[in-house]
């Protein structure tokens, strides 16, 4: 019936509009819900989300050891040539030659934080860090070496 449809149209429209207004009205009278972060005023207490990707880092343990075998899987996975792995040959105590990481070169200025290198890594040697304050005065300062000087591969990582 036409009139019934017409009236129910009006009723449902009003109801849905009021539902929307209830939500925004709730936010208006509840200032505690505000999610704005007043950076840099709250720099000390700033808590980034876990999934935030700021840069690629390579964690080192207390003995200055990392887990990178120098397999270049991350370099191959990177879509825009951000990572360059330079390898060397270590001599094991048995006298064998073994491929190992010499320098992990990371171009922060090229990185899009796509996370593909972290996913490609077979030994979980790299992960995404949460630091986002990357601005510097010279572009060359964005070229980073991720493995710390004097570090070596952790025992048992193949």
């Amino acid at each position: 019936m036409f009139l019934k449809e017409y009236l129910s149209d009006i009723y449902h429209a009003t109801k849905s509009l009021l539902t929307g207004m209830k939500r925004t009205g709730y936010y208006f009278v509840h200032p505690k819900e505000i999610i704005t972060e007043q950076y840099p005023d709250n720099r000390e207490t700033l808590k980034m989300a876990d999934r935030f990707r700021g840069e690629v880092i390579m964690p080192h343990d207390a003995n200055n050891e990392h887990a990178c075998t120098g397999c270049t899987a991350c370099e191959l996975a990177c879509p825009n040539a951000t990572i360059k792995i330079i390898t060397k040959f270590d001599v094991t105590p048995e006298g064998k030659k073994k491929k190992a990481l010499d320098t992990f070169v990371y171009h922060l200025e090229l990185c899009t934080m796509c996370n593909l290198c972290v996913e490609a890594c077979p030994t979980d040697a790299i992960k995404m860090g949460q630091n986002f304050e990357h601005s510097v005065y010279d572009r060359s300062m964005l070229l980073k070496k991720l493995n710390k000087p004097g570090s070596k591969i952790r025992e048992g990582v193949e």
């Binding site: 009205g25 936010y27 208006f28 200032p31 999610i35 704005t36």
Partner: peptide, 13 residues
């Protein structure tokens, strides 16, 4: 200010 409060923001401050 009203817009900010309704969108869970702070607005001009």
């Amino acid at each position: 200010k009203v817009a900010a409060q309704m969108q869970i923001r702070l607005g001009p401050n």
